[in-house]
Amino acid sequence: MEPIIGNSPDAPATDGLIVDTTTQTFTRDVIEASREVPVLVDFWAPWCGPCKQLTPVLESAVKAARGAVKLVKMNIDDHPAVAQQLRIQSIPAVYAFKNGQPVDGFMGALPESQIKAFIESLAGNIGPSPAEEMIGLGREAYEAGDLSRAAQAFAQAAQEEPGHPAAVGGLARCYIDTGDLERARQTLSLVRPDGRNDPEFTAAEAALSLAEKADDLGDIGELRARLEKNPKDHQARFDLALALNARGDKEGAVDELLMIVEYDRNWNDEAARKQLVEFFEAYGPKHEATLSGRRRLSSILFS
């Protein structure tokens, strides 16, 4: 399994889809161009922090739309006239033009899902992007246990849309499952800034943290023997939970931690409860071990 994230020769062409404009070229780049396809105008400035977050997401969404819209960027420090005419008072501000007229817009740094919905309100349903299609294939292969095929799909998605959190997270999970924690760590570092709170990325981060903790836990048989001698050896039970999770026994791992919470919920500054939360984040909100574990944890805590 040797996928490499880099520039893909199959990445969608972006020539003409994303341009910078000036006061002199605005009519050509926006007014006239919007008679062919909708044009998004990104008003920004170098000193604007949220602009630096929004622009890469806008560019990614426009590339994914594959020609359904264009993106024009305007630095209002260098070219203030148009922004003044439109009475733009704060940035980032995005205006959509169709048929030569501004028709919609928004201010602030929106997440990619909302930007895609905004684009579809202008251009109609654009369907899944090539990256989204590859991520779907990657998820299917991962669930089927085909890590090599999953890794290739996630890597191709990351080539299509560099830093995509689901692609980065999925590829990292493949490395984690093969024991290559260093490459998993390197892969996670490639996520784009707006993707750090994406559920699939945070799940991969949690999975890496768990894998790193499991490196020096000792033999499961030895841990069970310690518990037979002393069922309230919470450290042994805690280590056993991590070891079971590392072997893929999610339900068994959750059971052991729930037992600690039931015995002594405050042990080691609520370490068992906190570890359960990390398990649930790594498993994902829809996994049966998460659903069952959350119900049982709530029952213990609020009984």
Rank of each mutant, 00 (worst) to 15 (best):
Y175G: 06
R183M: 13
M134F: 09
E132W: 00
R192G: 09
N197T: 15
T202E: 04
D177K: 13
A172M: 03
A151V: 10
V168P: 04
G170L: 03
R192D: 08
G138I: 04
E205T: 14
Y142S: 14
A155Y: 11
P199L: 09
I176D: 03
V191A: 13
R139C: 03
A150D: 07
G136A: 13
A204Y: 03
E200M: 09
A155E: 02
F201S: 01
P193I: 03
R173G: 00
A166H: 10
A153Q: 12
E143Y: 01
F154P: 04
E143P: 00
E200N: 09
R173H: 04
G195E: 08
Q159E: 12
A166M: 11
R192V: 01
T178P: 02
S148L: 05
R185F: 05
A204I: 03
A141N: 11
A206Q: 04
E143F: 01
E205K: 12
R183S: 14
Y142K: 12
A141R: 06
D198C: 06
Q152E: 15
T187R: 01
S209D: 10
R192E: 10
A131W: 11
E133P: 00
G169T: 05
G138E: 02
A141E: 13
A151S: 12
L181E: 08
Q159F: 01
N197D: 15
A203H: 01
G195N: 04
D177L: 06
A151T: 06
G163P: 09
P130Y: 06
A207R: 10
I176Y: 05
N197I: 12
R149P: 00
G138R: 09
R139D: 15
K213G: 03
P162W: 06
E160L: 11
A211T: 09
Q159N: 15
E212N: 11
V168K: 01
A211F: 12
P199V: 07
E205P: 05
L181D: 08
I176M: 05
A153L: 10
